[in-house]
């Protein structure tokens, strides 16, 4: 099967899944009796509607080619960073460093993927941004909470730009026998992280009893994590035919993606609480902000990228 054919099979599968989800959502909406049940179902249905839109956007970007894919992920980084900066107390003296983050680092990081310059891609933000951003901030001459401000800006670009950019960076990998199919690897990573989030949510709502980390993330449950995580791992394993991995390899990779995704959701949830909010924003109906959707991806992408790079 060619990459194109695999892509159409995948889209067929995802559209069928969403159609079933919309049907179930409509049935639940008709049956919901209590006030709280109605609220939960209304949120579920707006999540499903948002999924239709997200899938459509990704499908168009994938079909339009690698540059469109880079622009799409660059925009996701842009909006995620915008949410992060909005909630982080910065000062007037951070104006130039922040400008550089949005209008120099984001375009540069994604352009490096486009040019295929892996060496600079890998160190641009952890090394050069790390050195230059605080230096530029210091020039503005405001030492008040300087370390705190610099650390927050560095953390923000690491998560929203550096980590997220490892998803389209999968296009850089030259895997023997898998040439020209990088987009399918991106699809695989997105499918497993997002299915993991969705299935943990579903299992949590159906069987969730034991809170996992009530102070950090009040909606995560042990039952949701185990049930949803294992189910998502199985889904990923069953998708081995779109990857360069053998079935067991795909299963192991999916497991790593699920674990890292869970840790990402947990860590970014703790960041959210420390900033005193519940959602990162309100950009994606039902889901919250862009960062609420890509938190798990940001932790899973670099690890998945490296494992694939070293073992295949």
């Amino acid at each position: 099967m060619s990459a194109q054919q695999k892509f159409y099979w995948l889209m067929g599968g995802v559209v069928t899944l969403l159609a079933v989800a919309s049907l179930v959502g409509a049935l639940l909406a008709a049956r919901a009796g209590t006030e709280t049940a109605r609220a939960v179902v209304a949120n579920l249905n707006s999540r499903i509607r948002a999924w239709w839109a997200m899938v459509a956007i990704f499908a168009v970007a994938f079909l339009a080619g690698p540059i469109a894919t880079l622009v799409l992920f660059g925009s996701m980084s842009f909006f995620a960073l915008r949410e992060f900066v909005t909630l982080t107390p910065t000062k007037r003296a951070d104006h130039v460093p922040l400008f550089l983050c949005f209008f120099v680092l984001i375009p540069l990081q994604y352009a490096l993927i486009g040019y295929g310059w892996y060496g600079l891609f890998a160190i641009l933000i952890p090394v050069y941004a790390f050195l230059i951003l605080p230096a530029v901030a210091a020039l503005a001459g405001d030492p008040d909470r300087f370390l705190e401000r610099s650390a927050k800006i560095q953390w923000a670009v690491m998560v929203t730009v550096y980590c997220v950019s490892h998803t389209p960076a999968l296009l850089l990998l030259r895997i023997p026998g898998y040439e020209g199919q990088g987009a399918l690897l991106i699809f695989f990573l997105l499918l497993v992280t997002q299915m993991s989030d969705v299935l943990q949510y579903v299992f949590g709502k159906l069987f969730g009893r034991t809170l996992l980390a009530p102070t950090v993330s009040p909606s995560k449950t042990v039952e949701g994590l185990i049930g949803g995580g294992l189910a998502a791992t199985a889904v990923g394993g069953a998708m081995y035919w779109i990857t360069p991995f053998p079935p067991l390899g795909a299963l192991a990779m999916s497991f790593v993606i699920v674990v890292m995704g869970f840790l990402g959701g947990l860590a970014l949830s703790a960041v959210k609480r420390s900033l005193g909010v519940k959602d990162w924003g309100a950009m994606i109906e039902g889901h919250g902000g862009m960062l609420d959707r890509v938190d798990s991806l940001s932790f899973a992408a670099p690890v998945f990228f490296h494992l694939t790079r070293y073992f295949w």
């Binding site: 915008r82 949410e83 900066v85 909005t86 104006h95 922040l98 400008f99 209008f103 924003g281």
Partner: peptide, 10 residues
């Protein structure tokens, strides 16, 4: 005030 370029903030 005093800056000439905007930064993205919601």
């Amino acid at each position: 005030k005093g800056t000439f370029v905007p930064i993205p903030v919601v």
